[in-house]
Amino acid sequence: MRNIMRKEMKLCASPITYWFILFGLMFFLPGYPILCGAFFTTLGIYQGFLYAREANDIEFSALLPIGKKDVVKGKYLFVCLIEGCALLLMLAVALIRMTALADSVVYLSNALMNANLFALGGALLIFGVFNVVFLGGFFKTAYNMGKPFIIYIIVSFMFIIVLEALHHFPELGVLNSFGFDNIGLQVLLLLMGLAAFVIMTLLSYRRSCRNFEKIDL
C-alpha cells in the first residue's frame, strides 16, 4: 500500500491539493462561515482529480500489478490523508481560539459559528459528504467528475448553512460554546462527527470498489 500512496502523492496530486490544506486556517476568521475551509480543502482535492484524469492515471493504475480494489483504496487513503491534514490544522486553530484567544472580543461578538470542537465535527461531516457524493460519484465511471462535484457543492453548502444556523435556535446556543465551556458536549459532538465521517467513508469505499470493478476502461 505504501507504493500506491507514493504514486498518489508524487504522480497524481496537483500542488494545489497540498496548498489548499492551508484553508484549514480559515478557522481563525471571525465573521466568516469557517466550515467553508473544509469545502476549499476538498476543492483542492477535486483539482488533483482533474489533473490525474488528464494524466490518464486511472488506466495507468489499473495496469499496475495490483488489484482494482487497491486502486480505489489508494484514492480514498490519499483523500483521507489530505482531509486529516486539514483537520489537524483546524484542530490547532480551534485549540488556540479555545485557550489563548478565549477572551478575544472579536470572537466573542462573532455572529457566525465559533471554532470549537463542534465545528471540527462539522468539518468531518463535510469531508464525509465529499467522500460519499464526490468520490462515490466519480467511481461510478472513473471519468465523470463534474456532476458529482456539483451535487457535492449543493449538499455541502446545505450542510454548512444548517450547521451555521443551528446555534441561533434558543435551545441550541450551547453548540457555540467558547473555550472549554460544555467540554463534554463538545467532545461528544466531535466524536459524532468522526463516527459519521468513518461510516460514510467506509460505505462509499465499498460501493466504489464494486462500481470500479464493473467499469470498462
Binding site: 504522480l11 488528464e54 494524466a55 490518464n56 492515471d57 488506466e59 495507468f60 495496469l63
Partner: peptide
C-alpha cells in the same frame, strides 16, 4: 504492455 501512443503523466 503498451496501449498505443497514450502517455502517462505527460508532464512528469
Amino acid at each position: 504492455y503498451s496501449t498505443g501512443t497514450v502517455s502517462w503523466y505527460p508532464r512528469k
